[in-house]
Amino acid sequence: MNTIKYLALPLLAVSLVMTGCANRKPTTDANATTNPNSVNTSGLSEDAALNAQNLAGASSKGVTEANKAFLAKRVVHFDYDSSDLSNEDYQTLQAHAQFLVANANSKIALTGHTDERGTREYNMALGERRAKAVQSYLITNGVNASQLEAVSYGKEMPINAGHNEAAWKENRRVELNYEAVPPLLK
Rank of each mutant, 00 (worst) to 15 (best):
Lys61Val: 15
Phe70Pro: 00
Arg129His: 13
Lys73Met: 12
Val151Arg: 10
Val63Asp: 00
His77Gly: 08
Ser86Trp: 05
Glu65Arg: 09
Leu85Glu: 09
Asn160Thr: 08
Val39Asn: 04
Pro10Gly: 07
Thr111Gly: 01
His96Trp: 08
Asn54Pro: 04
Gly62Leu: 07
Leu185Ser: 07
Met18Cys: 14
His96Pro: 08
Leu9Glu: 07
Thr114Phe: 07
Gly57Ile: 07
Leu184Arg: 09
His163Tyr: 11
Asp47Leu: 12
Gly57Asp: 09
Gly127Lys: 01
Leu185Lys: 05
Asn2Ser: 10
Asn177Arg: 13
Ala48Ile: 06
Ala8Tyr: 05
Thr114Glu: 07
Thr140Cys: 02
Ala32Ser: 13
Met18Gly: 15
Gln53His: 10
Gly20Val: 09
Ser38Pro: 00
Met124Leu: 15
Ala56His: 06
Leu44Val: 05
Asn31Ala: 15
Asn177Leu: 13
Ala30Cys: 03
Glu128Gln: 15
Leu185Asn: 08
Arg173Gln: 08
Thr27Tyr: 09
Thr41Asp: 08
Asn2Ile: 12
Arg173Ala: 05
Asn87Val: 11
Leu44Ile: 07
Leu44Ser: 05
Leu184Val: 01
Gly118Phe: 04
Gln98Ser: 14
Gly43Tyr: 00
Asn37Met: 10
Ala8Asp: 06
Thr114Ser: 15
Gly20Cys: 09
Arg130Glu: 04
Ser152His: 00
Gly62Gln: 01
Cys21Gln: 13
Ser106Thr: 07
Ala13Arg: 01
Val174Leu: 00
Ala72Trp: 06
Thr111Asp: 01
Ala102Pro: 01
Leu110Gly: 03
Gln94Arg: 13
Leu55Pro: 01
Lys186Asp: 15
Thr34Val: 11
His96Met: 12
Leu85Asp: 03
Arg117Leu: 13
Asp47Ile: 10
Phe78Trp: 03
Glu65Pro: 08
His163Arg: 15
Asp47Tyr: 10
Leu138Tyr: 04
Gln53Asp: 05
Leu71His: 05
Phe78His: 01
Val143Lys: 02
Gly154Tyr: 00
Gly43Thr: 01
Glu149Pro: 01
Val151His: 04
Thr19Glu: 03
Ala66Tyr: 06
Glu156Leu: 14
Thr114Arg: 00
Asn103Glu: 07
Tyr90Ala: 06
Thr33Ile: 10
His113Trp: 02
Pro182Trp: 00
Val174Pro: 02
Val76Pro: 00
Thr140Trp: 06
Ser152Tyr: 01
Ala133Phe: 05
Asn144Asp: 15
Asn171Gln: 09
Gly118Pro: 01
Ser152Lys: 00
Ala30Arg: 11
Ala66Leu: 12
Val101Met: 04
Glu165Pro: 02
Ser60Ala: 14
Gln135Lys: 15
Glu179Pro: 00
Val151Gln: 09
Gln135Trp: 02
